[in-house]
Simulated scan of single mutants.
Amino acid sequence: MTVDNLRLMAAMQMGREATLIKARDELIKAGLIEYQKGKKGSPNRYKMISFTFKNEVQSVVENEVYPVVESEVYPVVEGVVQSADIYKHKLKQNINNNPPISPLRMFEQFWAAYPKQPMAAKHNTEIAYADAVMGGAEESELLTAALNYAESCRILETDAQYIKNPDNFLRDNAFVGYLAESYKKPVPKVRKETAADRYNKGIMTQDYDYDALERELLGGDN
Rank of each mutant, 00 (worst) to 15 (best):
V73N: 08
F110C: 04
V68C: 11
M48Y: 09
N97C: 13
P99R: 03
Q58I: 00
Q58D: 00
Y46N: 09
S50F: 02
F53N: 03
R45W: 00
M106I: 14
E72L: 08
Y35N: 08
E34F: 07
Q58F: 02
P43A: 13
E78P: 00
F51W: 08
V81Q: 01
E56H: 02
N98H: 12
Y35I: 11
A112R: 05
R105S: 13
E78Q: 13
K88L: 14
V68F: 15
N98Y: 10
V80F: 06
S83W: 15
I49Y: 03
N94W: 07
V68I: 06
I95C: 06
P103M: 01
R105D: 05
S42K: 04
V77Y: 02
V57G: 14
E70W: 12
Y46K: 13
K47N: 08
G38Q: 02
D85T: 10
N98S: 06
V77E: 02
P103Q: 07
E64H: 12
R105G: 05
Q93E: 10
S83N: 08
R105A: 09
D85V: 06
L91Y: 14
V61L: 04
P43S: 08
V65T: 10
M48Q: 07
P75Q: 11
K37S: 08
P67I: 07
F110M: 08
N55V: 00
Y46S: 02
N55D: 08
F107H: 03
S71P: 05
V77R: 01
I86N: 10
E56G: 03
F110K: 03
K90M: 05
F110H: 04
P75K: 08
P100G: 06
Y46P: 10
A84V: 13
Q82K: 12
P99K: 01
G79Q: 15
